[in-house]
Amino acid sequence: MPNLINNHTGISFAQIQMQDALNQIKVDIENAIVTNGEKGKNALIRTQKPIKLIHDVVKTAFLNLGVHPSLINPELRRLQRIANPPNRVNNRPIILKDKELALAGYLKTKNQDVSIVPRNIVVHPETLTFPTYLNGFLDRFGTAFTESVLSVNVRSQLSSVAKNFDTLYERTFAEALNFHLRSPRMVLGEVYMIILKEYNSDAAANHQVAFNNSEYIEKYILAFQALNDRINIEDPLYKYERIALLIVDFSQPIPKLYNTTQELIQDGLLNPNSVANIDRLSFPTFIQDLFNIYQTRFPENSFS
Rank of each mutant, 00 (worst) to 15 (best):
R140P: 04
V89S: 11
K26R: 14
L79K: 07
R46G: 06
Y240G: 04
D56W: 02
A61C: 02
D28G: 14
L222R: 11
Y199C: 02
A223G: 05
A205F: 06
Q17W: 13
N3R: 13
H180K: 01
S159T: 07
E75W: 03
N42H: 09
Q17L: 15
P253F: 08
S159I: 02
F13M: 06
N301L: 15
S151V: 09
K239L: 04
L103M: 09
S12M: 11
E300S: 15
S214Y: 03
V209G: 02
N64W: 14
Y238W: 06
R88N: 05
L71F: 13
P131I: 00
A61N: 10
L107T: 07
T132D: 06
P184H: 05
S159K: 10
K163F: 14
I94V: 06
K97E: 13
N73M: 15
I82E: 14
A204Y: 06
N259G: 08
F303I: 04
G40P: 01
S12R: 12
T143S: 13
K108L: 11
R155I: 06
Q112C: 05
T60H: 00
N23A: 11
F173R: 06
Y238K: 08
E126D: 14
Y133C: 10
A203L: 12
F283T: 07
N213L: 12
K110R: 15
E30L: 07
I194D: 03
S274W: 02
V122K: 08
N228H: 00
P272G: 05
Y294H: 10
L134P: 05
L65S: 14
I243S: 07
I287P: 01
N213H: 08
N212E: 08
K26N: 12
R171W: 05
Q208R: 14
K52M: 02
P299K: 01
V209F: 06
N120Q: 14
P184A: 02
P236N: 01
G189N: 08
Q262G: 01
N135H: 14
A83G: 13
A32S: 15
H207C: 14
E241I: 09
L65P: 02
P86A: 06
L270E: 05
V248I: 10
L138F: 14
N212G: 02
V117A: 09
F13K: 08
F224Y: 09
F286C: 09
F303G: 07
Y220A: 03
I247M: 05
I243A: 08
H68I: 06
N64S: 13
N120F: 09
Y192K: 04
Q48C: 04
T129M: 08
H124D: 10
R77I: 00
V58I: 12
I116P: 13
L44E: 13
K99Y: 12
Y133M: 11
T129N: 05
D20A: 14
A83N: 09
V117Q: 04
P272R: 03
R230G: 03
R185D: 09
R92V: 04
T132F: 01
D235T: 10
I278K: 00
R155W: 12
D267Y: 00
I82C: 09
L138Y: 15
N178A: 04
Y294V: 11
A176S: 03
D139C: 01
Y220F: 11
N90W: 05
F145Q: 13
T296Y: 12
L269Y: 10
N271W: 07
M18T: 10
R92Q: 11
F250E: 00
N301V: 13
E170A: 15
F283M: 09
V123A: 12
